[in-house]
Amino acid sequence: MARDNHSDRKNELRTTLTDLDGAGYGGYKRLRGTHRVATPNGTPVTLSVDKVQSDPFAPPSLVQASIPFSETGIATTLLDVDISDIPVRDHLTRRIASSLREHNPSGGKGSGFLAMDTPGQQVLDRSSVVISVPDDRVTVRLEVALPAQGRRIRGRAAAALLCEVLPTVVQDALLDLDTDALDAVELAHETYLDQEFLRGELDHLGLVGFVADGSVLPRAAGNSQH
């Protein structure tokens, strides 16, 4: 019977990490490159490990996880505007940040964790999510603190983090978009367009800003987002 090469590739990363269990932390450098994992519902995820931290106390490793953009269900028409895909990417970044808070392990260095910059109130041109319509890809850029016990690799914990937690975050944030979630993406897009239009009107109207009806201006503190 012919071997399922795709299934084999999905298991390669887990096998490598399991084999590394207990090795010196530098062994994680073997992860550098491209791997295949899958979400719980079976969607293939391309995982690129771009930078591997030198020890448990160094800055986290850098990875990219990508899936077909068409799998998200988000209309490509939301990207066909002069301002590009800023509001869609910003909204997806917020979904990923929320999913990370829900699914990240809580065991500290022994379990490792996934991270990305959590957005504030501003809608910005972020590099945390990249969308390429011609390639039908959406890519998430993350930091990964690879699990350690002292300066030894916790390979099974790393396998759980990269082969289970990360794909679950991808599915939760990018694939499990029901009607309400897709409507929220469209609302984020429309709100951003409205803001950009209003900002464009300020100069020739001789205004310096605008405040929407019903706005609540005071915040809990000067450094608060709420």
Score class of each variant (00 low, 15 high):
residue 148 A to D: 06
residue 153 I to M: 01
residue 156 R to F: 04
residue 153 I to L: 02
residue 171 Q to F: 14
residue 156 R to N: 07
residue 125 D to E: 13
residue 156 R to A: 02
residue 115 A to F: 03
residue 166 L to V: 04
residue 144 V to Y: 02
residue 165 V to C: 05
residue 126 R to N: 11
residue 147 P to Y: 12
residue 136 D to S: 10
residue 153 I to T: 01
residue 145 A to H: 13
residue 117 D to Y: 02
residue 170 V to P: 06
residue 159 A to F: 05
residue 132 S to D: 08
residue 135 D to H: 14
residue 132 S to Y: 10
residue 140 V to Q: 10
residue 146 L to T: 02
residue 136 D to F: 05
residue 126 R to G: 07
residue 162 L to W: 04
residue 124 L to M: 09
residue 151 R to S: 14
residue 160 A to R: 15
residue 159 A to R: 04
residue 132 S to M: 05
residue 167 P to M: 11
residue 116 M to A: 01
residue 163 C to K: 07
residue 173 A to T: 01
residue 177 L to Q: 03
residue 124 L to I: 09
residue 117 D to A: 13
residue 120 G to E: 01
residue 166 L to P: 00
residue 143 E to P: 01
residue 151 R to D: 13
residue 141 R to N: 10
residue 176 D to T: 14
residue 146 L to E: 03
residue 161 L to G: 06
residue 124 L to G: 06
residue 168 T to V: 04
residue 133 V to L: 14
residue 153 I to G: 01
residue 147 P to Q: 09
residue 162 L to S: 06
residue 177 L to V: 03
residue 115 A to C: 00
residue 122 Q to F: 05
residue 142 L to K: 15
residue 137 R to P: 02
residue 135 D to S: 15
residue 118 T to M: 06
residue 115 A to R: 00
residue 177 L to W: 06
residue 151 R to W: 09
residue 124 L to K: 08
residue 128 S to T: 07
residue 178 D to M: 07
residue 134 P to R: 08
residue 152 R to S: 13
residue 121 Q to C: 09
residue 156 R to G: 06
residue 143 E to G: 15
residue 162 L to N: 02
residue 129 V to E: 00
residue 136 D to A: 13
residue 125 D to K: 14
residue 121 Q to D: 07
residue 180 D to S: 15
residue 118 T to N: 10
